[in-house]
Structures are given as C-alpha cells and as structure tokens.
Simulated assay, not measured.
Amino acid sequence: MSDMRRAMRRRVLTSIGGLAAATLAPAVCATARAGSPDDRFEAIDLAAPPPPALRRALDPLRGRAVLVNFWATWCEPCRTEMPALVSLDEAEPAIALVTVAVADRMDEVRRFFADHLVDPIVVADPEQVISRAWDVSYLPTTLLLDAAHQPRLRVRGEIDWHTDAVRARIRAFAGRSPAHA
C-alpha cells in the first residue's frame, strides 16, 4: 500500500471516528424532570478554572453573574429552552448568558440563532474540552456563575426559564456577592 493511500485511509478513519464521537457524546440529551423548578438547582463547587475559550468569553462580563448554557442544535430539549434563556438574558441586566455549542457545527448554530432572531454569546466546543473540564454529561446543562465567575449552581436538563420561581432564584443569585452565592 502506498504512503499516499495510507495517509488517505488514516484521514478517512480519523474523520469517521471524530464524527462518531460528536454524535454519541455527551451521552444524554435530557428532558424536563418532575418536581418544582426551584428544586432543580444543584449547588456545585468546581475547582477547575474555565478553559481558555470560555475564559475569553467571560472576561468582558467581569462583575456580572453568568448563565453558561451547554447545548447543541441536534438536542431538541436544548432547542426548546433556548428562547426562554435568551429572554431571561434580555430581561435581567445583572445576568449575562453565554452558550457553549457542544459537538456541534457552527454553521448549524449560526442558522439556529438567525432563524430565531437572537444573538447570544456563543463558544464553540466541538471536541468537548469545556464540557469535560466542567463535568457536563447531559444536554442541556446550565451553570450559574457568580460575579467572580465561579460555578455555584447547576441545572441538568431542560427547565422553563420563564417561570416565576426560576426567575426569582436567578435574580436572588445575581444579587448575592461571590462569597454568599
């Protein structure tokens, strides 16, 4: 077998492997769970700093609480909750929204946002570097970062960001100092 054929074969196999990994992970695309929406917030304390791509998106948002939403265009619950997240971002000036497109194609991400006439901050995570660093194994997953950008709360799965209980929880969280979040 010639060197060129070997190189082409390796390239094809690598492409197939990457495509398979992107379509299979994260393993779960979670739907809404039962119970009070306010019960869905889990306290967390992640020691890992934001990976560089996410840190670049967070730097201009210093001093503000941030919702970091891990999602994908191929995840139906993610697509369903995104308009409510964007609406929350627009309605609450003390909170910023950063979306992390997990194992997704950026042309699909841009098309989704253009179709919905929204323009949130988007960080690409095609190889799931950010997802792995912050232990995200379900989509959608949203982390609430305090004003110092430390992850404090997590919601796994779809949630209705329009409900009064959820918005009150977010407002209360955004109003706290990092030491009290």
Rank of each mutant, 00 (worst) to 15 (best):
M1S: 15
M4I: 12
M4P: 00
R5I: 11
R5C: 06
R6F: 14
A7N: 09
L13W: 12
T14I: 11
S15T: 12
L19D: 07
A22S: 13
T23N: 04
T23C: 07
A25W: 15
A32G: 11
R33L: 07
S36E: 12
D38L: 13
E42Q: 13
A48E: 14
L54I: 02
L54E: 07
R55H: 14
R55D: 15
R56H: 11
L58S: 12
G63R: 06
R64G: 04
V66T: 14
V66W: 09
L67N: 11
L67D: 11
V68E: 07
W71R: 06
W71T: 08
A72D: 02
T73F: 08
W74I: 02
C75K: 09
C75D: 12
C78W: 06
C78M: 09
A84E: 15
A84M: 13
L85P: 03
S87P: 00
L88M: 15
D89W: 13
P93S: 11
V98I: 10
V102K: 04
D104R: 00
D104L: 01
R105P: 01
M106C: 04
V109Q: 02
R110T: 14
F112K: 01
F113G: 00
L117Y: 10
V118Q: 15
A124Y: 04
A124R: 05
P126S: 08
E127Y: 05
E127M: 10
V129Q: 07
V129N: 02
D135C: 00
D135T: 02
L139R: 01
P140A: 02
H149G: 09
Q150P: 00
P151A: 09
R152M: 05
L153K: 03
L153W: 07
R154M: 13
I159W: 03
W161L: 05
A165F: 01
R169W: 01
I170K: 01
I170L: 15
A172G: 11
F173M: 10
G175D: 13
S177T: 13
A179D: 14
A181R: 10
